[in-house]
Design a protein around this nucleic acid. Sequence first.
DNA 1: TCAAGTTGTCTATGCTAATAGACAACTTCA
DNA 2: TGAAGTTGTCTATTAGCATAGACAACTTGA
Lengths: 242, 242
Amino acid sequence: MSMQDAATGVALWRQVADGIERGIAEGRFAAGEKLPGEMEIAETYRVNRHTVRRALATLAERGLVRAERGSGTYVETQRLAYPLRSRTRFSEIVGAGGHEPRGQLIEASDDVATRELARELGLKTGAPLVRIEALRLADRTPICVSTSWLSAERFPDAGQVFASVRSMTKLVAHYGIRDYRRSSTRITAAIADASDAARLDLALGRPVLVVDSTDVDPDGKPIVTKRSRFAAERVEFIVESD
Amino acid sequence: MSMQDAATGVALWRQVADGIERGIAEGRFAAGEKLPGEMEIAETYRVNRHTVRRALATLAERGLVRAERGSGTYVETQRLAYPLRSRTRFSEIVGAGGHEPRGQLIEASDDVATRELARELGLKTGAPLVRIEALRLADRTPICVSTSWLSAERFPDAGQVFASVRSMTKLVAHYGIRDYRRSSTRITAAIADASDAARLDLALGRPVLVVDSTDVDPDGKPIVTKRSRFAAERVEFIVESD
DNA sequence: TCAAGTTGTCTATGCTAATAGACAACTTCA
DNA sequence: TGAAGTTGTCTATTAGCATAGACAACTTGA
């Protein structure tokens, strides 16, 4: 019943690595600057220097820090600002941040609507759907994995179309829909599962922002419903009230 | 270079526990229903039964599941829906969900404005602030820990006032502010640090939703800026577009 | 009532995480 | 140049993770 005295089940070096990464993400360690020495880090976390070394090694492998023998260990990073508005387009948001948006089809398959999917899409339970699993990147950095569902009757061959245009905006344009908007967005967080972690190039145990959303056409008719998993360490959602 | 073949630094029993918890959170295991047997879980995760038992033991300790000897292991849970609007009041949101909102002062102290805080609050760097660290609960379940900053000149003794009224809405009402709205909200996710984990009664390694927000009065003048850490496994944010 | 299926507890063993100390290799700065 | 401070590498030891097998205690349903 009482709380746990430490993060049971999570290796110490992992906790140290996460702590340092958090420090970087929050700006306590600025990009380009030198981290405290291994001995100092070991003292602040009350841990052996070798444990710190292992933590730093994993961060270095992921390209977050760079060690220079005799000198110190240095930082590099930056989080992508991702506004959530009724007009939410991955390519526009990433492009506005000065990065090149990329899309990549992982898998397209046929599916049938569960009760929840049917409700979101305004269809009947069991209606034929196209399920598209896609990876989205900014430059070469994976940002999110998303699973999208569309009506198979309204969007036949959506999977093949997506494979060639690699953008949801262009996909729906192909079916004559020139504009759409976000109707609902639900956000929570979880730990990445094995396959998401692999696709996002995340260490397992890292958090993802899970976003369930539905886009509708100008008449309010549902087009597509999605579940996207964003690498939490690479994005920051901006909610604009009013 | 290559990705990690498994969640290095995270114990197997922890991965199994997280997997099951995710299954519960996503509704794959409905509340009240029976989980698969320990042997079956062990097979799906390709892991020893003892490892599964340890995973289930931690979930049971946190009240997520309940084991019944000879029969099986059963689920219990529900996530709190937390809408993010320009009118965002913890007490109203929790109350609307049929729970009793509670607030608890952890610590109040004097502080001075960093450049970021000053910008958010429309003050000068170094201006005197009151910093309030508070825990918010729904019934007896901790939901979030928040650190709030207010101008010490405009809200003298804010810490003492909060300690007695235990609500941000009532606090500002005490200074004659009858209404306010959310002006900006930024969301990301992280792993809970040791003290937040303890206050939220979270196992370390569990994710939190980190929300940075600023409230303004009807004239648009900043009142308070906050950083809140929500237990991700207990809430789900709802963003309403339009 | 009995067999099958479930959770609970014990013993035992190999492997990895974490600690500890020592020293080499290198950089920085006085 | 030299001393202080840094990262890199080695050896050794202890505690905890994970596996394995066996059996007890209990529930369920035929």
